[in-house]
Each structure stands twice: as C-alpha cells, then as structure tokens.
Amino acid sequence: MIKKARGWRWITAALAGTVAVAVAATAMAWSGEERERSGRVPVPALPAPQGEECIEDADTMRRQHMHILDEHKRDSVRKGVRRPERDLQACVDCHAVREPVIADQPLTPRQRLAFCANCHSYSAVSLDCFACHSSEPGAAVNEGNDE
C-alpha cells in the first residue's frame, strides 16, 4: 500500500511538471514576437475590415468560413434562400481594401482582397472564388463610406 502511494505521488509530480512546461512553451509560442519568428513563413498581415462585427466570432470564422460559405451557396443558388449578410459579396464589401497601395494606381484584385489572399497563400490553399465572383465592393457600401 505504502509503495503504491509513493508511486502515485511521483506520477502526479511528473504530470504537474509536464503541464507547467507545456503551458510555458505555449505562452512563449503565442506571444507576439515569438509567433513572428516561429516559422519560416511570416504570419500574414491582414488589413482591417470596414464593419464592426462579422456574422460569427473571429475564431469560428477562421475555422468555419468555408463551410458557412458552402452551405449558404447551396441554399441560395439552388433553393433561393437569400441571406445578404452571408453572401460572398458581403465578405468583399467589408474586407476589401479601398485605398490604393501605390498612389494613383488602381488596386489589383490580389491587393484588393489581401485579407483573403494573404492568409490563403500562408496556408497554401488555393482561392478560387474570385475566378468568377466580383472582387469589387458593392456600390451601396461605397456610398456609406463616402458619408
């Protein structure tokens, strides 16, 4: 019995140590500067969106945006369910860059949608949406910005 209890104590101590090391390592990895230096590819810089909040929180959007878009695509194209806030155009309206990167030069689609393109290129996932869909923000949003 005594032997067994000693063994448990030893295992508990080892576990606590491991957890402490893991927490410290994670904290270091995610602190800003460490994160920048952690990989060979720099973490993408994302332009700030125009709107106040997205349809879901940032973590959900980061992981689920493709599924949300896919579901909405099927609903809207095939069944005619319109939810303008979930349209790809709504993403563009909010996330597209509006100010020219080089003065007096029109933005290329890649520059305009740096929000999408930078992250997709970082994660090596091809971005096909804008082979067909417009990458220009809608007129209504432009009017809103001018005010």
Binding site: Q89, A131, C132, H133, S134, S135, E136, G138
Partner: peptide, 15 residues
C-alpha cells in the same frame, strides 16, 4: 477569361 464582373452575376471561363 472574364475581364470585369458584375456583382449581380458571377461569370467564369469554362462554364
């Protein structure tokens, strides 16, 4: 390839 697209209707080469 489609040069300019209307937000009203996506168009793409090959469809």
């Amino acid at each position: 390839p489609v040069a300019s697209r209307s937000p009203n209707h996506p168009r793409g080469k090959g469809t």
